[in-house]
Design a protein around this nucleic acid. Structure first.
Lengths: 210, 210
DNA sequence: TTCACTATTGACAGTTCTGTATATAAGAGC
DNA sequence: GCTCTTATATACAGAACTGTCAATAGTGAA
């Protein structure tokens, strides 16, 4: 049977890598808004500027797309965190507070926090994608001891946990809560809080040093 | 036209209040698992043991159901928090740490934390349902000054923010992160962390008192 | 230029889901 | 008992969504 119905649109042919990246970027934007359960293959395709079967061609199924996106997000997040801490280490002890503030900013910077929150909440991270926190613990503890002298590593672990949970909460509810508590408006209020938190953590560590 | 197809099932007729409560309970359980975007009216009905049009009869639309559930969840959460803090106030200064730990436990106790996380993340709280934190601030500051003497209320606000964000993060990622950081397993690890956090907060406040 | 490969597309099938129309039975009130 | 109200049920319509299939057009290699 000949092929007559409809007129074909112009096609832009990408390499496999380009196509996959474009689709993942689009999926990330969609997921940022509606979360994994609300992610529609058609919406992703539309945002990526292609027909939806092409998305399925590259990722097999909707579920495959979500899995790939989860992997990429987790990798990027841990990468980002490790790099920020390494930067803090080389910055030296005299910039403790600024470095720590920058670490806090970096961990769930921009949309990454919301993405992680969605993925964790829908149990997509933590099952397949167990986070490996050990390098982060080692790095942080090394940084801490190098600037403040020896300390309890369990305490480091707890402080990391506190920071991680607070940053995760911040990326979910930060804007609303900062304003509800009259601690400033919008992004500035959140940055102020993070700066304060950095100082708070360092004071606490110093107070326990002896 | 006569009505012949199918045989009617036994019916249990509830009052409006009972029916609405049963449906909201079912919806809460479903939402706990899959979030607002994943909530299906049919799934709620099945869980509540009724046919799905009955759900729509009571709440109009799927959206109406979600709105009602959001309202109920926000009310319950704030109620719970306020009550826990009031209990802490009457408990007196000698039980500061235990009281604070119990407040932290209560805020997002059980499934409430996950529910709030879903609702905030999908922007269902914060638009219509702006949280009113002022009573909580007042209560907490009164408690703080009554046990520790006068202090900066801005600091109280920041500490509340830190606690709220950490508890929110805890209800989302607590289990996984506590284990990843080797700070205990399961619920016990989280309780330990909350107890430690209570002590941490109080030490910090005392250190800044003078 | 020609050819092979495959990224991309339009059309469609099957399922699922929300919302509606209509019928019925469980109670409440008389 | 009888009637009226309405919570609940079945059946169905229409839309949306995922995944399949076959056709087609870029693109690199021969």
């Amino acid at each position: 049977m000949p092929w007559v119905k409809g007129r074909m649109a112009k096609r832009t042919r990408r390499t496999v890598e380009e196509a996959r990246a474009a689709i993942l970027d689009a999926a990330e934007a969609v997921l940022h808004e509606v979360g994994p359960a609300g992610l529609r293959v058609t919406a992703v395709a539309k945002r990526a500027g292609m027909a939806h079967p092409n998305v399925l061609h590259h990722f097999g199924t909707r579920e495959g797309l979500l899995k790939a996106l989860t992997t990429r997000t987790v990798e990027r997040s841990t990468e980002r965190a490790v790099r920020a801490i390494q930067a803090a280490v080389v910055a030296g002890p005299e910039h403790r507070k600024e470095s720590l503030a920058r670490v806090l900013d970096a961990v769930y910077e921009g949309e990454q926090g919301r993405l992680m929150a969605w993925l964790v909440l829908s149990r997509r991270v933590d099952d397949e994608e167990r986070l490996d926190m050990e390098p982060l613990v080692k790095l942080t503890h090394a940084w801490r001891t190098s600037t403040l002298g020896p300390g309890d590593i369990q305490e480091t672990r707890r402080l990391i946990l506190l920071s991680a949970l607070a940053m995760l909460g911040d990326s979910i509810a930060g804007e609303g809560l900062v304003e509800s508590l009259e601690l400033g408006t919008g992004e500035q209020g959140r940055r102020d809080f993070r700066a304060w938190l950095a100082g708070f953590l360092i004071e606490q560590i110093e107070g326990r040093r002896e």
